[in-house]
Design a binder for these strands. Sequence first.
RNA 1: GCCGCCAUGGCGGAAUAGGUAGACGCGCGGGACUUAAAAUCCCGUUCUGGCAACAGAGUGCGGGUUCGAUUCCCGCUGGCGGCACCA
Length: 805
Amino acid sequence: MKYNFAKIEPKWQKAWADAEAFKAVDFDKRPKWYGLVEFPYPSGAGMHVGHIKAYSSIEVLARKRRMQGYNVLFPIGFDSFGLPAENYAIKTNTHPHIITEKNIQHFSEQLKKVGFSFDWSREFATSRPDYYKWTQWIFLKLFEHGLVFRSKTLVNYCPHCKVVLSNEDSQGGKCDICHSDVIQLPKDVWFLRITDYADKLLEGLNHVDYPESVKQQEIAWIGKSTGTFVDFLVKDHDDKLEVYTTRCDTLYGVTFMVVAPEHPILDKYKSEITNWDAVEVYRQECAKKSEFERTQLVKDKTGVKIEGLSAINPITGKEIPIFIADYVMMGYGTGAIMAVPAHDQRDYDFAKAFNVPIIQVIKGGDISKEAYTGDGEMINSGFLNGYTNKKDSIAKMQEFLGEKGIGHKGVQYKMKDWAFNRQRYWGEPIPLIHCPKCGTVGVPYDELPLKLPDVENFEPGQDGKSPLARIPSFVNCTCPKCGGPAKRETDTMPQWAGSSWYFLRFCDPHNDKAFADRKKIEYWMPVDHYNGGMEHVTRHLLYSRFWHHFLYDIGEVNTPEPYAKRTYQGMVLGADGEKMSKSKGNVIDPVDIVDQYGADTLRTYVMFMGDYGSAAPWSDESLKGCKRFLDRVAGLTDIVKDMPEDPDTEAKVHKTIKKVSDDIENMKFNTAIAALMTLINDFSKKGAITKSDLETFLKLLSPFAPHLTEEIWEFIGNNPDGKTFCTLSSWPTYDEEKTKDATVKMGVQVNGKVRGTIEIAADAPKEEALAAGRAQENVAKYLEGKTIVKEIYVPGKILNFVVRG
RNA sequence: GCCGCCAUGGCGGAAUAGGUAGACGCGCGGGACUUAAAAUCCCGUUCUGGCAACAGAGUGCGGGUUCGAUUCCCGCUGGCGGCACCA
């Protein structure tokens, strides 16, 4: 058969769509399988090859599952709120709504051209009111349950995007959207209490099938630490300065305290601090430094001693000085530390620089040179002297502190609460109302969706407020509680809001009574397999798990964890081995590839190019190799003969069924395709195959190259009514007995070096194998005149003569 | 600095309950077809030596365990990812 991809691809895409071949059926009796890919942001640039690779794994699995008799949900939608559309709107003065819908249209056409078997009837976009109504609904539930709070603290702020960012949005001190340096500003911000869910997010990882690297990254990001809070008295005041420490047993070694430059104790005792000018100068210097400078570049210890204010070591009763220094962060612990210079290198460096005494309390190391951070016997520590196990000494000290009422156990997380409001237009309006009498009140549920009003100008205001603040008709409202005049919140939700629950909407996308019908959620959830990028592990993945745990706690969903299994794909690099970028000119447009070589070639190549989880450079030559393979597949129709099954070919077919089936399950798509290439090579050598051989081959290849295999399926007469699709046929099964070879080729070694090869029965007895080995001319040469010390025979694997002399 | 991962031909990569290293593809060399080229097909292709049979070396480096190590252990080197003055 001749392979004309340009003709057959649109033909079958239409046929599948007309027959609703990929429609997921709610409550069907077949076992369900929910495969999910990270729905795209519909950017103006359209689809990237990265999308093809990211989606192809679940695509292949979904097609295989349908053939295996599963009721498959493989949905697609669009994550369509966000800054790029808004920035483009500002530049072109076009409404982001118009741009977004146009991009969705374009993106959908591109995805369809590749032949992904999505159930398009469930498509939605997060920027449409019928969707964001429910994003707002979940937000109100969070508010109702006390998980939304407002606080004026130091937050990450991107001066370029003019927007407050969460910690997750500013990893490495860079804005996630524009990559410029993030600064710290005191702002009045809405937070979601994700830290309340830190333990649940950690514990949940024990019950899901995620790669170890993904789990480790989430664990590190949450950063749970167990320790002790200890109160230090401020001298001559009935006031305390609380610190957090993981080594409360070193309390006898505390010779000073350090507070962060932003610590409130400074302003509180301003009148008593005799060197206030110096303190103020230092604070201003710190404020000027970017987060990057403060945490990464400047490792030298700087600081200022606070004159006129000191503290009392609660265990020794001694007066100790208080410093401010920027190596202590306001955002972690209490913003104040007890310094143990003998056993903490940072405190040690600071003590040396500021000439503070150093008291050793753990035996070991050389304190004259550096801090000793190892374990050892407690010394100079009163009742702790003689303890050698830190677990015991910490427990003893905690007990003591507890009795005295000056300290208690506690936990700390590196993860911070989720700064949730954005001073931008193109996002979900936050459904809250500020009433001068009643405080903050949620918009009543029956008034949702709170629609995003039209504006003329999408630019964020110079006052740091969102464009919504300039619309009096939106801002001014009545309080739902008291009916008095009130004002609406004018900030919008962050990019991540809509994607934090979208997998639930796919269960029931057109419901206008609930975010999804409970019965449908119970039928489809959890997601059986979710594939996506590593870059989302501490962003989208964490956020969506948080929301889902919350929805579980309030009884809205049936499982705490949304995703049973998570995998990730490696990046597709440019042909030069560099990350694809416009400036490097190494970008591959998947649509060009589809036009030139066909979607099946693109799909096959992307799965064949290397290990799925690893990055691999693009190669036009290798792509052509995949096209060549598909051309040969089309040619198989020429060698189909009406003849009895050849046992040798049959064995190869059965082995291939096993290999391809297993490899797809293990995401080893490259070797699955390699096995099919090997099989077609065997077919070619034989020169003739049965129709049944071809059918099996087509079924195995169908998930990768669905259009070509569908066309051949029809060509050989298997689709008489136009609806009996190869892609919905049954997945081939294999007979284990037929995958086993009667004879095996084995290497024969002498002292571990291969000296010959024998072919014998797989289960040949040892004597027979040894005799065959000795009979090998080359082997005999090496055995001659030597004493055989040992004969090793591992059936089917190896024969080894160990000789001496 | 800490945590995790990785290192195999000219290239992408196969093979790890320890058992003939280099499957499959690309590239390259040779041949067939063609007036010629492309396409296609056939043969070869880890390196060194040899017409060949075969021999030696070989999975980042140095050791170890073993009849046998790409695979396991110890110590390095290089690279990737994450976190980072986290108390």
